[in-house]
Amino acid sequence: MIVIKTREEIELMRESAQIVSKTLGMLAKEVKPGATTLQLDKMAEEFIRDHGAEPGFLGLYDFPNTLCMSPNEQVVHGFPNKNPLVEGDIISIDCGALKNGFYGDHAYTFEVGEVLPETKKLLQITKESLYVGIREFKAGNRVGDVGYAIQNYCEAHDYGVVRELVGHGLGKVMHEDPEMPNYGKRGRGKKFKEGMVVAIEPMINAGTHRIKHHNDGWTITTLDKKMSAHFEHDVAIVDGKPQLLSTFDYIYEALGIESNEEDEFRKK
């Protein structure tokens, strides 16, 4: 069942999403060669609690950490560990926060030092596909419109679009209806309505779309061991149009990046 949010509830969700955004911004300068994902995880937990929220992932479905940390060929759901990051790595950091009874949940794939040009392109195209999908999240459109847009954009660059893992509705529970695949056909699936809130999150592989589930029950990697990128935003339909609740602005500020990519989706 899709849970429609009031304007007041959307503002509470924005607050939760912004705590996640600030957490990722805080981590941006700490993602560098020699840092361990376990160190970053502890920093994130402290930061979230200091901002009056609870880590959204910690204990959820028995997950043992605050962050899902997925380097290189790991797609999502990786465990933080003591292995130091290495120059040329990429790392998807997926973070959640719970405040005022509502979840925020979004992700960014960071470069560790200097990465190869083909790796940088994978990240660029994946992030661009996120906004291509968000443009289709508007009243009257359907789930398949978002999935088609993302799939078409990424496959045009010969990348693999993961099928088994999808975005989702968001609210008082982490995963609500509807599921939001990154593939699909136009005009198919549930119709979008005013007040819907979803997490749209392309998971795009440099090679095959096929993945491997590991025995720990969480870790997922690309089948061909090529790189995978992951970007995620929380989005609400307000006045019929997509409006971002999360932002990458704090990341860009920390890294000295100028961007206007979010301007069309900001609160008016």
Rank of each mutant, 00 (worst) to 15 (best):
I134H: 03
T36H: 03
F57I: 14
T66S: 05
C68R: 02
T37N: 01
S92H: 07
L67I: 15
I134F: 08
G104K: 00
T109R: 08
T36M: 07
V115C: 12
I91L: 15
R135E: 14
T109N: 05
P55I: 08
C95N: 07
N65K: 11
F102K: 02
A28N: 04
V75W: 01
K32Q: 14
A28F: 04
L123R: 08
V112R: 02
A44N: 07
Y103R: 00
G78F: 03
Q74F: 07
Q39H: 15
P80H: 10
L116Q: 11
E128I: 06
K82F: 12
D105C: 14
E128Q: 12
P117K: 03
Y61F: 07
G96D: 08
G101R: 11
E114A: 10
G101D: 10
A44D: 14
G101Q: 09
Q39R: 15
Y108C: 02
G88A: 08
L122Q: 04
T37A: 00
L116E: 15
V132T: 06
H77K: 00
E111L: 01
L60W: 09
E114S: 13
T37V: 01
N72R: 07
Y108M: 02
L58S: 01
L98Q: 11
F63G: 04
K121R: 15
L122T: 01
E30Y: 11
A44V: 05
G133E: 07
K42L: 15
D41L: 13
E111Y: 00
G78S: 03
P80G: 13
D62S: 10
I90K: 01
P64G: 01
G96T: 03
L123P: 02
L38T: 13
V76L: 15
G59V: 10
H51L: 04
G78T: 12
K99A: 09
H51R: 05
L123T: 10
E87M: 12
G96F: 07
M69V: 09
L85K: 03
E118L: 09
K32F: 07
V76E: 12
H77Y: 06
A53F: 06
H51Y: 04
L60V: 01
L67P: 04
L38H: 13
T119Q: 14
L27W: 02
D105T: 09
A107T: 14
A53V: 02
S92E: 00
G133I: 04
L130M: 11
V132F: 01
A97I: 08
N83L: 12
E111C: 06
Y61S: 01
K127A: 00
D41W: 11
E54M: 12
V115T: 15
N100H: 15
A44M: 06
G96M: 13
M43K: 14
M43V: 14
E46F: 04
C95V: 12
K42H: 11
G101H: 05
P33Q: 15
I48W: 00
V31M: 10
T36W: 05
S129D: 12
F110A: 03
Y61L: 01
A53I: 10
L85I: 06
P64F: 08
G113L: 12
D89L: 09
F57K: 08
N100L: 14
I134K: 02
Y131G: 09
P80E: 12
Y108L: 05
N81T: 00
G104T: 00
G96R: 06
P117W: 11
